[in-house]
Protein backbone atom coordinates (compact mmCIF):
# COMPACT_ATOMS: atom_id res chain seq x y z
CA UNK A 1 0.00 0.00 0.00
CA UNK A 2 1.16 3.43 -0.75
CA UNK A 3 0.48 6.29 1.47
CA UNK A 4 -1.41 9.07 -0.17
CA UNK A 5 -0.47 12.40 1.26
CA UNK A 6 -3.42 14.72 1.08
CA UNK A 7 -3.16 18.48 1.02
CA UNK A 8 -4.28 19.84 4.36
CA UNK A 9 -7.95 20.87 4.44
CA UNK A 10 -8.12 24.60 5.17
CA UNK A 11 -9.71 25.32 8.51
CA UNK A 12 -13.11 26.88 7.95
CA UNK A 13 -12.92 28.72 11.23
CA UNK A 14 -9.63 30.35 10.28
CA UNK A 15 -11.09 32.44 7.49
CA UNK A 16 -13.10 35.50 8.53
CA UNK A 17 -16.68 34.52 7.95
CA UNK A 18 -19.46 36.85 6.89
CA UNK A 19 -22.55 36.84 9.11
CA UNK A 20 -25.17 34.24 8.32
CA UNK A 21 -28.32 35.85 6.95
CA UNK A 22 -31.61 34.44 8.18
CA UNK A 23 -35.02 35.68 7.09
CA UNK A 24 -38.11 34.98 9.20
CA UNK A 25 -41.40 35.21 7.32
CA UNK A 26 -44.40 35.81 9.61
CA UNK A 27 -47.94 35.59 8.25
CA UNK A 28 -49.61 36.82 11.46
CA UNK A 29 -52.26 39.43 10.83
CA UNK A 30 -52.52 41.30 14.11
CA UNK A 31 -50.20 43.36 16.29
CA UNK A 32 -49.35 41.84 18.69
CA UNK A 33 -49.28 38.50 16.92
CA UNK A 34 -48.51 35.10 18.42
CA UNK A 35 -47.28 34.02 14.96
CA UNK A 36 -44.72 36.82 15.12
CA UNK A 37 -43.83 35.83 18.70
CA UNK A 38 -43.11 32.28 17.48
CA UNK A 39 -41.10 33.53 14.49
CA UNK A 40 -38.99 35.67 16.82
CA UNK A 41 -38.44 32.79 19.22
CA UNK A 42 -37.36 30.44 16.41
CA UNK A 43 -34.98 33.09 15.07
CA UNK A 44 -33.49 33.57 18.55
CA UNK A 45 -33.04 29.81 18.94
CA UNK A 46 -31.27 29.56 15.58
CA UNK A 47 -29.15 32.59 16.39
CA UNK A 48 -28.12 31.17 19.71
CA UNK A 49 -27.27 27.75 18.21
CA UNK A 50 -25.17 29.43 15.51
CA UNK A 51 -23.50 31.71 18.04
CA UNK A 52 -22.48 28.53 19.85
CA UNK A 53 -20.50 27.66 16.73
CA UNK A 54 -18.90 31.08 16.65
CA UNK A 55 -21.09 32.42 13.87
CA UNK A 56 -22.61 35.87 13.67
CA UNK A 57 -26.18 36.05 12.46
CA UNK A 58 -28.28 38.78 10.86
CA UNK A 59 -32.00 38.22 11.17
CA UNK A 60 -34.51 40.03 9.00
CA UNK A 61 -38.24 39.65 9.61
CA UNK A 62 -40.70 39.86 6.73
CA UNK A 63 -44.22 40.67 7.96
CA UNK A 64 -46.62 39.51 5.28
CA UNK A 65 -49.44 41.67 6.65
CA UNK A 66 -47.60 44.73 5.40
CA UNK A 67 -47.28 43.11 1.98
CA UNK A 68 -50.86 41.87 1.62
CA UNK A 69 -51.86 44.48 -0.95
CA UNK A 70 -48.59 44.26 -2.97
CA UNK A 71 -48.97 40.44 -3.00
CA UNK A 72 -52.49 40.80 -4.44
CA UNK A 73 -51.15 43.26 -7.02
CA UNK A 74 -48.39 40.86 -8.04
CA UNK A 75 -50.84 37.99 -8.43
CA UNK A 76 -53.04 40.10 -10.68
CA UNK A 77 -50.46 42.21 -12.52
CA UNK A 78 -47.71 39.60 -12.82
CA UNK A 79 -44.86 41.68 -11.43
CA UNK A 80 -43.97 42.68 -7.87
CA UNK A 81 -44.21 46.23 -6.51
CA UNK A 82 -40.72 47.29 -5.26
CA UNK A 83 -41.42 46.63 -1.58
CA UNK A 84 -42.49 43.05 -2.37
CA UNK A 85 -39.58 42.57 -4.74
CA UNK A 86 -37.22 43.41 -1.86
CA UNK A 87 -38.92 40.89 0.41
CA UNK A 88 -38.80 38.12 -2.22
CA UNK A 89 -35.13 38.88 -2.84
CA UNK A 90 -34.41 38.78 0.89
CA UNK A 91 -36.03 35.35 1.20
CA UNK A 92 -34.44 33.81 -1.87
CA UNK A 93 -30.95 35.13 -1.06
CA UNK A 94 -31.01 34.22 2.66
CA UNK A 95 -28.82 31.46 4.09
CA UNK A 96 -31.89 30.06 5.82
CA UNK A 97 -35.61 30.82 6.02
CA UNK A 98 -37.94 30.56 9.00
CA UNK A 99 -41.55 30.39 7.81
CA UNK A 100 -44.42 30.76 10.31
CA UNK A 101 -48.14 30.94 9.62
CA UNK A 102 -51.34 30.91 11.60
CA UNK A 103 -53.57 27.92 10.82
CA UNK A 104 -56.57 28.99 8.77
CA UNK A 105 -59.19 26.41 7.77
CA UNK A 106 -56.99 23.34 8.17
CA UNK A 107 -53.92 24.76 6.40
CA UNK A 108 -51.52 27.68 6.09
CA UNK A 109 -53.20 31.04 5.58
CA UNK A 110 -53.97 32.15 2.04
CA UNK A 111 -51.64 35.10 2.45
CA UNK A 112 -48.77 32.79 3.41
CA UNK A 113 -49.40 30.55 0.40
CA UNK A 114 -49.78 33.52 -1.94
CA UNK A 115 -46.38 34.83 -0.88
CA UNK A 116 -44.64 31.52 -1.51
CA UNK A 117 -46.60 31.16 -4.78
CA UNK A 118 -44.68 34.21 -5.95
CA UNK A 119 -41.27 32.64 -5.38
CA UNK A 120 -39.63 31.20 -8.49
CA UNK A 121 -39.96 27.40 -8.45
CA UNK A 122 -36.22 26.74 -8.10
CA UNK A 123 -35.31 29.72 -5.92
CA UNK A 124 -35.45 27.77 -2.65
CA UNK A 125 -33.64 24.65 -3.91
CA UNK A 126 -31.36 23.39 -1.17
CA UNK A 127 -32.36 26.22 1.16
CA UNK A 128 -32.62 25.30 4.86
CA UNK A 129 -36.14 26.09 6.06
CA UNK A 130 -37.58 25.94 9.56
CA UNK A 131 -41.37 25.78 9.67
CA UNK A 132 -43.72 26.83 12.42
CA UNK A 133 -47.44 27.43 12.89
CA UNK A 134 -49.82 28.82 15.49
CA UNK A 135 -53.41 28.03 16.32
CA UNK A 136 -56.03 27.99 19.04
CA UNK A 137 -55.59 24.31 19.79
CA UNK A 138 -52.91 21.65 19.37
CA UNK A 139 -55.43 19.67 17.29
CA UNK A 140 -54.22 21.73 14.33
CA UNK A 141 -50.58 20.83 14.79
CA UNK A 142 -50.27 18.30 11.95
CA UNK A 143 -50.90 21.13 9.51
CA UNK A 144 -47.12 21.49 9.73
CA UNK A 145 -46.57 17.97 8.41
CA UNK A 146 -49.48 17.79 5.99
CA UNK A 147 -49.39 21.28 4.51
CA UNK A 148 -46.20 23.23 5.23
CA UNK A 149 -43.64 20.44 4.89
CA UNK A 150 -44.94 19.23 1.47
CA UNK A 151 -45.05 22.83 0.24
CA UNK A 152 -41.36 23.37 1.03
CA UNK A 153 -40.40 19.90 -0.12
CA UNK A 154 -42.05 20.70 -3.44
CA UNK A 155 -39.90 23.84 -3.56
CA UNK A 156 -36.86 21.53 -2.98
CA UNK A 157 -36.00 23.25 0.27
CA UNK A 158 -34.32 21.30 3.06
CA UNK A 159 -36.85 21.37 5.89
CA UNK A 160 -35.64 20.92 9.47
CA UNK A 161 -37.04 17.72 11.00
CA UNK A 162 -38.53 19.51 13.98
CA UNK A 163 -41.38 21.82 13.08
CA UNK A 164 -42.85 23.89 15.89
CA UNK A 165 -46.54 24.36 16.58
CA UNK A 166 -47.61 26.83 19.25
CA UNK A 167 -51.20 26.45 20.43
CA UNK A 168 -52.58 29.22 22.64
CA UNK A 169 -52.11 27.02 25.70
CA UNK A 170 -48.39 26.57 24.94
CA UNK A 171 -47.66 30.19 25.85
CA UNK A 172 -48.37 29.34 29.46
CA UNK A 173 -48.18 25.55 29.36
CA UNK A 174 -45.77 23.00 30.66
CA UNK A 175 -46.06 20.23 28.04
CA UNK A 176 -47.09 16.72 28.97
CA UNK A 177 -45.62 13.23 29.23
CA UNK A 178 -45.49 12.82 25.45
CA UNK A 179 -44.73 16.37 24.32
CA UNK A 180 -41.85 18.71 24.98
CA UNK A 181 -42.68 22.16 26.22
CA UNK A 182 -42.72 24.97 23.67
CA UNK A 183 -39.24 26.20 24.69
CA UNK A 184 -37.91 22.63 24.42
CA UNK A 185 -39.28 22.22 20.91
CA UNK A 186 -38.07 25.65 19.87
CA UNK A 187 -34.56 24.88 21.09
CA UNK A 188 -34.44 21.51 19.30
CA UNK A 189 -35.76 23.09 16.07
CA UNK A 190 -33.22 25.90 16.33
CA UNK A 191 -30.32 23.47 16.72
CA UNK A 192 -31.38 21.31 13.78
CA UNK A 193 -31.96 24.32 11.58
CA UNK A 194 -28.58 25.83 12.59
CA UNK A 195 -26.86 22.58 11.60
CA UNK A 196 -28.56 22.65 8.20
CA UNK A 197 -27.67 26.30 7.67
CA UNK A 198 -24.00 25.80 8.47
CA UNK A 199 -23.71 22.76 6.21
CA UNK A 200 -25.75 24.23 3.38
CA UNK A 201 -23.63 27.38 3.43
CA UNK A 202 -20.49 25.25 3.25
CA UNK A 203 -22.00 23.22 0.41
CA UNK A 204 -22.79 26.30 -1.61
CA UNK A 205 -19.27 27.68 -1.06
CA UNK A 206 -17.70 24.38 -2.13
CA UNK A 207 -19.74 24.47 -5.31
CA UNK A 208 -18.70 28.05 -5.89
CA UNK A 209 -15.01 27.15 -5.48
CA UNK A 210 -15.29 24.23 -7.86
CA UNK A 211 -17.37 26.19 -10.36
Amino acid sequence: MTTVVQAPVPEVAAAPQPPIRLVAVSAGLRAPSSTRLLADRLAEAAQSALAGQGRDVDVQVVELRELAVPIAHHLVAGFPPPVLDEALEAVTSADGVIAVTPVFAASYSGLFKSFFDLIEPDALTGKPVLIGATGGTARHSLVLEHALRPLFTYLRAVVAPTAVFAASEDWGGSGDALTDTLPGRIERAGEQFAWLVVHAVRGVRDHAVQG
Partner: peptide, 14 residues
Protein backbone atom coordinates in the same frame (compact mmCIF):
# COMPACT_ATOMS: atom_id res chain seq x y z
CA UNK B 1 -58.61 39.06 22.08
CA UNK B 2 -54.91 38.25 22.23
CA UNK B 3 -54.55 34.47 22.40
CA UNK B 4 -51.45 34.09 24.60
CA UNK B 5 -52.81 36.40 27.33
CA UNK B 6 -55.11 33.60 28.47
CA UNK B 7 -52.39 30.99 29.10
CA UNK B 8 -50.09 33.65 30.57
CA UNK B 9 -52.74 34.06 33.27
CA UNK B 10 -53.45 30.35 33.52
CA UNK B 11 -56.67 30.35 31.46
CA UNK B 12 -57.84 28.69 28.24
CA UNK B 13 -59.05 30.96 25.44
CA UNK B 14 -61.51 28.32 24.29
Amino acid sequence: NTGPVYPWFGKDIR
